[in-house]
Structures are given as structure tokens and as C-alpha cells.
């Protein structure tokens, strides 16, 4: 049997973590499944639990000086309702799990679980999100792509908590998100695609592409994106196949219970190509979010 801690403040939570080797629970919608033993039997936890989901300090979102601060312990339902949360993230969250799960699951949990199928991750990668990691003694800020090191692996230390999610408040005229699941609701992601672009006149001024569930980590290729900046939209449309080809080696999916590597790879590449082929200078002609 393990102990549980219910800290009332962030400070208290960090002190608990510095004194004990704990498992942090922020909603528990993944953890409780991962550690389940049988129904109505206590799950199989080997370390004391710290329940941080109720911590008010971690439940605020605010837009400030061009940065969106998202509270890691906001539930997915909180985020769906919050005025500061941008629509593209709401679109993604609206397709995650079911309302009861969204009422428990937190954004910080989705990040720290570090699943390649974590649905908020492509957006956070595409937006260049940074994470604030805090312990009783120190705090540091890291880019999300440096935070997650592999499937279910992060650099979070046992005395640290994810206490802030900082997202540059960049808006894109073009947003396209596709989540492929086994069915239309309550599905884990087989593959996901997020494409965002800003076009000024007929020139690409910003473009981001992120893919989930098709490699050990979220796929985003800054170099390929940079190569498209400043180019005419028509050129990108024409070169879509060639540009897509550059993503080929980055997409390394697996066969599993939910899909096949071949399918994941082909569909991801087709979604990239389709996005690039249909990029257009005038918003609302086929490349707006679906």
C-alpha cells in the first residue's frame, strides 16, 4: 500500500517532492489505466502519490505580453471553456477522449505522459511552447521538444513539477488539423496532422507542420519549414510533392493494435502534401481549419 499526499499549495507540493520519491498525479486518466490491476482493487503504485490536480495556482490561463500562459492543471474541459485558449487548441481538445475523461484529464498530464499519441503535443510543438519546471530550490524553462526525450520519457526530475506552459501568442490564418482514430469519438490517435501557415500577399511568411503518433516523438522539421519561408504560395503548391518527400525519413511509425506502419506513413505524407498543394493566399479557400 502506498501513501497519498494532498498538498494545498504549490510550495507544499514541491516540498513533498523534495522529501519523497513520488508519483505525481494530475487527473490520473492515463496513470490509473496504466497501473490498473482489476476492478475495485487498488491500482499498482509503488511510490507515494501526490495529487496536484486541485492546486489553484496551476489552474490559471492568461494572455500577457504576447505570451499565452496555460495552467498545467487545467482540465481539458476547463481549457475548452476558457476565453484565452485559442481555437485551434480547442478544436484538438474537442476531439480528445470523452467529456467525462476531459473533466479529469489535464494539459500538464498530457505533456508529462509524453505519449507519441498525446493529442495536445503537435500543437505545442508547432507553437514553440516552453515549459516551466520548478523544484523547491530552482526553476528552469525548457522548450517542449527538449523536454520530451522519447516515448513516455521526459527530463523532468523527481523533485520537479511542470508549473507553467508558455506559448507565444502567434496567430495563423490557416489552420488544418486532422486526427485519425479507429472511430469518430473516444479514440486514441493512429496519426495526427497539424498544419498552420501565415501568408502575406502571396508569400509564405510563417509555416508550421507537426505530426503525432508517427514516430517516437512528435515530428516537426524546422529546417524544412524554413526552406518554405519567403516563397510564393504557387511555388509551394507546385513543389508540394518534393517538399513532402523531405519528411519521408522523419516519419517512422510502427505496427500496433490500432493501425499499421504503412498506413500511418502514407496518410501522414498525403496530408502534408495535400496541405502544401492547397495552401492559398486568400484565407477561406479550402485551407481553413476543418
Amino acid at each position: 500500500m502506498v501513501n497519498g499526499f494532498r498538498p494545498r499549495t504549490l510550495r507544499e507540493a514541491l516540498q513533498i517532492l523534495s522529501a519523497n520519491n513520488c508519483t505525481v498525479m494530475a487527473g490520473g486518466t492515463d496513470l490509473m489505466v496504466q497501473r490498473a490491476r482489476g476492478f475495485s482493487i487498488r491500482p499498482d503504485f509503488d511510490r507515494p502519490l501526490v495529487f496536484i490536480e486541485p492546486l489553484e495556482e496551476l489552474k490559471h490561463s492568461v494572455r500577457e505580453n504576447g505570451t499565452l500562459h496555460l495552467g498545467p492543471c487545467m482540465t481539458l474541459s476547463d481549457l475548452l471553456r476558457h476565453p484565452a485558449v485559442p481555437d485551434p487548441l480547442k478544436e484538438i481538445i474537442g476531439m480528445m477522449a470523452s467529456p467525462p475523461t476531459r473533466n479529469m484529464a489535464t494539459l500538464g498530464g498530457n505533456i508529462c505522459n509524453a505519449s507519441p499519441a498525446g493529442d495536445t503535443l503537435p500543437w505545442l510543438y508547432a507553437m514553440n511552447a516552453k515549459l516551466k519546471l520548478q523544484s523547491a530550490e530552482k526553476e528552469r524553462i525548457v522548450a517542449i521538444e527538449d523536454f520530451i526525450t522519447g516515448p513516455k520519457k521526459t527530463i523532468l526530475q523527481s523533485d520537479e513539477l511542470l508549473t507553467g506552459i508558455l506559448v507565444p501568442d502567434t496567430r495563423f490564418h490557416l489552420n488544418r488539423y486532422r486526427k485519425l482514430g479507429q472511430r469518430k469519438g473516444m479514440s486514441l490517435t493512429k496519426a495526427s496532422f497539424l498544419g498552420m501557415a501565415e501568408i502575406s500577399g502571396n508569400t509564405v511568411t510563417d509555416i508550421r507542420i507537426a505530426l503525432g503518433s508517427v514516430a517516437p516523438r512528435i515530428v516537426r522539421a524546422a529546417e524544412i519549414e524554413r526552406s518554405m519561408l519567403g516563397r510564393y504560395v504557387g511555388d509551394i503548391n507546385a513543389a508540394a510533392a518534393v517538399i513532402t518527400e523531405r519528411y519521408q525519413p522523419l516519419i517512422t511509425p510502427i505496427d500496433d493494435a490500432r493501425s499499421t506502419a504503412m498506413y500511418r506513413k502514407k496518410v501522414s505524407l498525403d496530408l502534408i502534401r495535400q496541405f502544401l498543394e492547397t495552401l492559398s493566399g486568400s484565407p477561406g479557400t479550402g485551407t481553413k481549419s476543418e
Binding site: 469519438g185 473516444m186 479514440s187
Partner: peptide
């Protein structure tokens, strides 16, 4: 069974 739980084995939801 490769799909041995309801996470991997899907039945239609009301959305389907």
C-alpha cells in the same frame, strides 16, 4: 488477442 481491451478494440460510439 491483439485488441484485448476497449482502448484497442473499438465498438461504434454515438458519433459513429
Amino acid at each position: 488477442l491483439k485488441q484485448g481491451n476497449l482502448t484497442d478494440y473499438k465498438i461504434p460510439t454515438s458519433m459513429d
